[in-house]
Design a protein around this nucleic acid. Sequence first.
DNA 1: GGTTCAAGCGCG
DNA 2: AAAGCGCGCTTGAACC
Length: 334
Amino acid sequence: MRPFNLESPKQLQQILFEKLQLPVLRKTPSGTPSRPKTCWRNSRRRHLLPRHILEYRGLAKLRSTYTEKLPEQIDPDTGRVHTSYHQAVAATGRLSSMDPNLQNIPIRSPEGRRIRQAFIAPPGYRLLAADYSQIELRIMAHLSGDEGLLRAFAEERDIHQATAAEVFGVAADAVSHDQRRSAKAINFGLIYGMSAFGLARQLGVSRSAAQTYVDLYFTRYPGVRRYMEATRAQARNDGYVETVFGRRLYLPEIRSRNRQLQQYAERSAINAPMQGTAADIIKRAMIAVDQWCQRDDIPARLIMQVHDELVLEVREDFLSKAAAEVGRLMSEGG
DNA sequence: GGTTCAAGCGCG
DNA sequence: AAAGCGCGCTTGAACC
């Protein structure tokens, strides 16, 4: 018998599953019992130990990846951390940031935000971040031409609230927190090509309830359903999908007899035009913003891109002018 | 000393 | 059986 390493995360988790009596919902090919991740993560509501372990993992990630590593990556010449952006990595046309990755600096947790606070501008300068609001859903509205969705955006509505009002048949100001949360999950799910099954798992409701939400959504936004169906059909016919600006993603597996590969290709076909068009738009904005920055006497520099967000370094006295101009360039393209 | 893989985490 | 897209980094295990 092999030595039993109690510090092996896998073994620890395995023992924990038994002690906590989490159900075995499937087995791996080798016969090892296995529980879905969500089951394990949900168990933290009932059990103290999983809660502590998940908290520990999050903190360990922050320490090992950011707190300990980033200071080592400071360039001695400039005193800054410099990333490399790669243009031909992500299939959808996004940039990817490497060595170090500055597109995944923490922000979602309070502890993570403390790490982000370490990123500062030089004396006399400030960081200016400008991001697109709901850009992929706006693109979905554009591509689908759905009247209801286009109207909601034209009226600058809170889109998740507006969706909830439509799907649950209530007035916008009567939408509950849970209804908005569900609508948000539906909206994200649509962008990702998610099924009713996936939505059910995400929301913790029954499959039939999730199916009801999806059906209701498509009744309210029929253009979106038409668009989704047309995109799948087009991908299957042509073997590729493309963005508004013509960037293509080839999907040979859309005709695979392997159902898993075929469905994955379908989800990619749904997602790529939206994610890819967003990538095209911000790249054009980057060119416009940088050209503006390079003009004489403009005390602002484009220093980072995070998919739907541009970050600039701006001289303090120029901040409001820069914010206005960057906003204009990002929405109108110059 | 190195590589490769999976798991698990960070972000949009 | 799997059933939500796109990424990168760290860790530990297994192996050379």
